[in-house]
Amino acid sequence: MDAAPRSAAPQGDGQSAPGERDPAQAARRRWMSVLAKAKLNELESAWEDLAQKPAYDWLRRPEVGMVMVRARTGGTGGRFNLGQMTVTRCALRLASGEAGLGYVQGRSKRHAELAALFDALLQDEGRRGELEDSVIAPLEASHLDRRTARSRKANSTKVNFFTMVRGENE
């Protein structure tokens, strides 16, 4: 991965297994995933609530493209291409130097931008703890809430089979 622009990957060496050997990488992986799955309005209000908003320049303006979604035969076998999904990405750099990256499903440029901004801010160790508590944790909780609500409704449709036990003849 020496070919990848290091500017956007300060902590990752790209060699270690994802999120296992490198706790910094695992942390970034987690918050980027949370930011990608967040609702745009949640991100907007988190941004509005932010006390000091940083200045930044684009490394790559938001662009809409696609990622080919892959799956496995039978769920576990060889890979195949299922179809594509729309994805928006961007890269930016804060005036303080941190480079942030946004890769989010869909075609919202603003979503990618906000994800990249928070990604950059979270790399500042001085701010990370506070942002984890005030932004990432609530976004994650809200995602989990949506998921649980769906899952509880699904579980109400789970079949409980009654087995009739025939009495022994005496």
Partner: peptide, 19 residues
Amino acid sequence: MALATSLNASGGIDTAELR
């Protein structure tokens, strides 16, 4: 774009020069 300047001020993350 002020990109070149922001890249020069690499702020200690990384020294790679991405034009």
